[in-house]
Each structure stands twice: as structure tokens, then as C-alpha cells.
Amino acid sequence: MEWIQQLVNGISLGSIYALIALGYTMVYGIIKLINFAHGDVFMLGAFIGFYAIARWEIGFFPALIIAMALCAIIGVVIERVAYKRLRNATRIAALITAIGVSLLIENVVIYFRGASPEAYPEVLPETSINILGVNISSISILILAVTIVLMILLQFIVHKTKIGKAMRAVSLDPDAARLMGINVDNTISATFAIGSALAGAAGVIFGVYYTRIEPLMGVLPGLKAFIAAVFGGIGSIPGAMVGGLSLGVVETVVSALGFSLWRDAAAFVILILILILKPSGIFGKNTREKV
């Protein structure tokens, strides 16, 4: 029964990767930019949630919503200030800018509050539920539930709402989207807002689950979520979900088998394998339009 326990842990970790990976993949889908500052938005979400819970003494859900809202705004500001003017620049210029934004965010946070870690307050009752003889912590269940709700919400926005359809249209063909009357700039901002809000949610969830946060906490999960997005097929929303969950489970299984030192390496091995075997990822699109 211990492996079920491990599976649950893997899914919890994978949920966090998946939520971050969604932002990577959506932004890449629409402006073909790997937003390396995305992991830092995740970190900001964790800190916003921390201050909301510890200082303002509000509950988990209000803190989650505040973190998502502020991260959405931060995401839009990053896009408008740093990336917008680079729309027609080379990919490498945009990529270097993204790395610069990432370092800037990390150092601004360190400047204002120092580099020391913070212990996340216990905001949720730590109980465990016994399912079929397996003890599963209530936090794991909550994380999974929040992730599922957010993913359903995202699917709804992307497929059923006007802004979601505009997002898909712009990512397929920006000029044709303009001809429909779609405001491409606003649509790109909306994509950043949604992706950053999901990263913010992941940050709060991470804090509650792992209870320790610090200003550089976004680097490794950010990188791994990026790998998860590539694994799922960069640009594909279902790909990011499946990629994130798979990576979480693989890492946990690798640790559980006694190779915990190899845990971080697993992600990079997956990246190398996917780049060799199927660079477009599992949900990657190979379809070409008919002309």
C-alpha cells in the first residue's frame, strides 16, 4: 500500500508542475517566447500567499485568490513593460530579456526581505483520511481538488469564452485574428494574466504543502515545469497538464525506489529523451495547414 501513498505524493507534486507548466505553454503558444521569469511569478505567488495568511490572518482560499489576482497583474506588467516591445525582435533577444526579468524579480525580493527562507503558517488542518487502508493527507486531497477545479475552469475559458477563442485564434495566426477584429495586444495580456494567476496558485499550494519558501524557490520548479511543458508538447494545454502530472509521479517514483539523489536528474533525462525521440512532445502538433 506504500506505493499508493507515493503515487498520491507524486500527483500532488505533479499538480504544482502542471499549474506552472500551463503558463509556460500558453505564453509560448501565443508569442513563441519561453518566459523564464514564470518560475519567479510562482515564487511571488507563494510569498503573497504567505503574507496574506501570516500578516493579514486570512484563510487559505482568500489568500489563494489574492495571490492569483496579484500574480495576474504582475504577469501583465511584465509583458507590457519588458516583452511587448520585443514582439518583432529576434528570439534570442526576447529570451535574454526573460532571463533578465527573472534575475530582477529574484533580486528585488531579496533586497526587500532578505534571502532567508520562511516557514509557511499552518493554514489547513493537518488530518489524514483513510481510503482503502491508505492514509492520505487532507492537504493532498485539497491540492488535487484545487488543481482540478482550476484546470476545468481553464478549459472552460479557452474553449467556451470569447477571450479564450481569441487566444486560440491569435496563437494560430495573429494576422488572420486581427482581420476578425481581435485586439491582439489585449489578447496576449489576457494570456499572461491567466498563466500568471495559475503560477500564483501553484505558489500558494507549494507553500502549504512543503511549508518552506524562499526567494530562489522558483528556479528549479520553473525549470522542471518548463520540461513538463516540452514533454507534453509546448503550446498544448492538455500536454502541460499531462506532462506536469507525469513528471511529478516519475520524480516521486525515482525517490521511492531509493534513488532520491537522482530525483532532479530524472527531469533532465526526460528532457533529453523527448528531444531525441519526439521533439514535438506527446501532444505536439505536426499538422500543417492546407494551402
Binding site: 470569447k162 477563442k165 481569441a166 486560440r168 485564434a169 494560430l172 495566426d173 494576422d175 488572420a176 485574428a177 482581420l179 476578425m180 477584429g181 481581435i182 502538433k285 499538422t287 495547414e289 492546407k290 494551402v291
Partner: peptide
């Protein structure tokens, strides 16, 4: 577009992964 000019571009430029109906909906954006 709002003023009443619609452009059917060279090479059709339909939104390939979206359904026929969604393409039409986008026309009425």
C-alpha cells in the same frame, strides 16, 4: 472591421485546429 470592411486573405488563413463553427463565430467577434 468594425466600420464594415472584411478581408478574406490570400491562402484562406482559416484557424486550422478550430472547428468550422468556431471559425464562423470568430468572424462575428
Amino acid at each position: 472591421v468594425k466600420n464594415g470592411i472584411s478581408h478574406v486573405p490570400e491562402g484562406r488563413r482559416v484557424f486550422s485546429t478550430m472547428s468550422v463553427e468556431e471559425n464562423l463565430e470568430l468572424g462575428a467577434y
